[in-house]
Design a protein around this nucleic acid. Sequence first.
DNA 1: GTGGGGGTGGAAAGCGCTTTCCGCCTGCGA
DNA 2: TCGCAGGCGGAAAGCGCTTTCCACCCCCAC
Lengths: 341, 341
Amino acid sequence: MPRTSSTRAPGGAVTLQQVATAAGVSLATASRVLHGSGGRKVAEALAERVTTAATELRYVAHAPAQSLARSRSTVVGVLVHDIADPYFAAIAAGAMDVAREYDLMVLVANTFRDPGLERDYLARLRAQRARAVLLAGSAFVGEPFAEEVAAFAESGGRVAAIGAHGTGIDTVEPDQYGGGRLIAEHLVGLGHREIGVITGPAGLATVAQRLAGFTSVVAAPRLVHADFTREGGRAATHELLGRHPEVTAVFALNDLMAAGALAALRELGRPVPEQVSVAGFDDLPVATDLTPALTTVRLQLADIGARAMRLLLDDEPGGRLVPAPAELVVRDSTGQASRLH
Amino acid sequence: MPRTSSTRAPGGAVTLQQVATAAGVSLATASRVLHGSGGRKVAEALAERVTTAATELRYVAHAPAQSLARSRSTVVGVLVHDIADPYFAAIAAGAMDVAREYDLMVLVANTFRDPGLERDYLARLRAQRARAVLLAGSAFVGEPFAEEVAAFAESGGRVAAIGAHGTGIDTVEPDQYGGGRLIAEHLVGLGHREIGVITGPAGLATVAQRLAGFTSVVAAPRLVHADFTREGGRAATHELLGRHPEVTAVFALNDLMAAGALAALRELGRPVPEQVSVAGFDDLPVATDLTPALTTVRLQLADIGARAMRLLLDDEPGGRLVPAPAELVVRDSTGQASRLH
DNA sequence: GTGGGGGTGGAAAGCGCTTTCCGCCTGCGA
DNA sequence: TCGCAGGCGGAAAGCGCTTTCCACCCCCAC
């Protein structure tokens, strides 16, 4: 029988006290050796006895107890709409990389764009005393949500957001507006005049900004709202082409919808880009694999997530705004406007 | 000035004591009202005073303190290779859904298939006293890792895995082997005899099993190892076709690699499926949007994640094995073997 | 030789919560 | 009228850790 039975609590984990006892030192000394916050020194010999005992017993500090005693936890939260959406997955991955640098663990919460869930998760992150929370994907910013954000900040946590989220909190602001403009200019440059836009829910800040950028160039595009997903894009495209067969270009407000748009156009027998051009937004990995390869706007999502996390974890005062560039990526799904109609 | 300044600690959060005082009751009573674990009743009037005070003050219980006192935490861990990989993102999303049902928060850790990182994260999950951990994507199962898993279990946490991970722990076992067979039978049925397989790292259990299923039907395929990514698939395909121009079908061990394979074949001017058939594995959402649409094996990833999480959280004894089916999805990327050569 | 100071280990007081007792009060039966 | 049981609120002892003190020891200076 291994040491387990003798030195380890029956059902539980090893405590610092057990390590201290095993090493023949006091609790305080053991703590200083293993987690000592500088300043205080412990004699070589003792220190070694302690570390030996700790590894022997496979000791790891009880994080909740540490959080309590130090009144600072080692977790950060990331709120995303849906981690299965590659947009958010990329952001989360970037953020998690940075969190690792800081030795923090990341709590991820899927909000499904449900304001209730968002508030709920934020409260629970506050309960965890998460050191910081990253609001990825600006949701429907509303009064009660803002209140919850304030409560979080007030109880000592930092908050940062990707995309506009109100004042006072650190923000990484992808240039959604500029990206919308880029697509508009690109399409107009190709001679398109009848352009349809298929968009996600109107309440989404991302949607609003991309659209605003676009309409700053193309005054009144044909608009169809739908889910911010592939299926939404497919349905919206059918509806758009049904209502406005004259459109020569479709701007999908994200790549997922664009994939749906391409599928719909294939179903309709409308060749892309010969008859209808299609553009997306985000430059997800899938964009190159679509047929034709998708013209889109590149956002450096992992980098955006990483920068937001850095904003959260450095010790600068809050309220900063870091712009993230949007870049036009021209591939094969857009071409000269057709002269057919 | 709102109540903030008067009733809330300067930099800190509201404590239960403050709520109790505000409600004019003892700490014990407040605790019983807000988190009382049944059994004990508190008079209506008092209870209401407490809940009122709590919402007034925006009180949320200090989770680390609760964990400490109850010696059970409210977080679970999910270890994935890379959350930006849609395969893992889907699994994680399914798992998170179930965690929400149980009112648990999910700590996600990206291990990048690095055994050191895996061990490290597992230790930290143990430190957090995570109630359970889901090992998604069986890594390189090694001695030290197994030891760390044992330590986790020993300290009271549950462990479940997706894919084989050794004995004694709950496992959801996607039918990787059967999926490999399905593809093999499908390709052979189409008349293919010269088949190439592009695979991920040999040490990955997933890879080994899929391949084993395949070779149980097709004895000695041409093999090329590469990264388990789109780029890996592209490179491997170039290499494969260079070395074995006679192959009439390529089996990519996941859809990401298949996407790369399609790209490579396009670059080589080899029409799919007329000259070369391509099959993948996973049925990621992207599979339908590839051109031609990808023949692949469907794994219900979200469901797999969800079931694994249920395994973790119900109170049944461990060591169960839940099979998850693999289903052939025939699309356009596979066809009759060409008679060209 | 004695006093003092620097350095190092240990005792103990929390951190915010849960939960076991304990004791009070009420109400009922004898 | 008194006793006792049942019910419910409160005091207090932890949960495992950090951190402030305090005490001690050794060494040096006077």
